Amino acid sequence: MNRSFIFTQKYLKFVSFLYIILFVYTATSKLIHIEQFHVRVAKMPFISEYSSLIAWSVPAIEILIAGLFLFPKYILSALYSSFSLMSIFTVYIIIVLRYSDSIPCSCGGVISTMSWKEHISFNCGFIALSLIGILLIEKNKKYVTN
C-alpha cells in the first residue's frame, strides 16, 4: 500500500466521524424539538409551504447520510450526499440573507447560536471536507475497494 492510500483511509475515517457527529446531533436535536423545528421552517422564506415535508425529511436524510458513512463501500455516496446537502443549506442561507428581511434559524443545538457569517463558514468547512474526500477517493480509486 502506498502513503496516499493510507492518508486517504485516515482522512476518510476522520471526515466520516465528523459528519456522523454533525448529522446525528442536528437530526436528533430537530426530532426532539420537531414541533419547534416545524414552526421555524414554516416561517422561512421560499419554503414555508413545504414545511411539513421539510421538517421530517431533513432529519431523516441527515440520519440516512450518517448511516452511509458507517459502511466503507458507501463512503463516496455519503460524501457526495453530504456535499450536496451542505451546499443546498448554504446556498439557501445566502439567498435568503440577500433577498429577505429576516431568516429564523432552524438549526439544532449549539449550531443555532452561530451568527450567519459563522454558519456559512462552518458549512463551507464541511463542504470542503467532503470535496477533499471525494477528490482523494477519485485519485486513489485503484486502491479503494467498492
Rank of each mutant, 00 (worst) to 15 (best):
S130A: 15
T90G: 06
L70T: 03
C107S: 07
Y99K: 11
G108L: 05
S82I: 09
I111L: 15
S29R: 08
I111E: 11
S81H: 01
V91A: 13
G109E: 06
S77W: 06
C105I: 00
K141E: 09
I61Q: 02
M44T: 14
I75C: 08
K139A: 13
S48H: 00
Y143E: 08
S112I: 09
W56H: 12
L53C: 00
I88R: 06
Y92C: 01
I127D: 05
T145W: 12
S4M: 09
I120G: 11
T8L: 10
S84C: 14
E35Q: 15
M114E: 08
A27Y: 07
S4F: 00
F14T: 14
I95M: 12
K142M: 05
C105T: 14
N2G: 14
R98D: 01
I63G: 01
L68M: 10
H38M: 09
S48V: 07
I6L: 15
F37L: 09
K13H: 11
R40T: 14
K117M: 06
S121E: 04
T113Y: 14
Q36G: 04
L76P: 00
V58D: 04
M86T: 06
V39Q: 14
L31H: 07
S16K: 11
S48M: 02
I34T: 08
S106G: 12
I134F: 08
W116G: 08
L136R: 08
L64G: 11
L18W: 13
Q9P: 13
C105H: 03
S82K: 01
K13C: 07
Y19V: 05
F14A: 15
S121A: 13
H119Y: 09
S16W: 12
V41D: 05
A78R: 06
Y11R: 02
T145V: 09
S51N: 10
G133Y: 10
L135W: 01
Y19H: 15
K139G: 03
S115T: 04
S106Y: 02
G125Y: 07
S77V: 03
Y80A: 00
I61H: 02
L12D: 09
T113E: 15
F37V: 07
T90S: 05
F89Q: 11
I34P: 13
A128H: 04
V96N: 01
P59A: 05
C124Y: 06
T26R: 10
T145R: 14
F69C: 08
G133A: 05
T8H: 13
V15Y: 10
L31R: 09
S77T: 07
L136P: 03
F7M: 14
L53Y: 03
C107K: 12
A128R: 05
S4K: 02
S77R: 11
A78H: 13
R3D: 08
S29I: 01
I120A: 07
I103A: 06
F7S: 12
I65N: 10
V39Y: 12
V110H: 07
I61D: 03
S121T: 13
I75Y: 15
Y92P: 01
F14C: 14
Y92L: 07
T8E: 10
I63S: 06
Y80T: 04
L22D: 13
N123A: 03
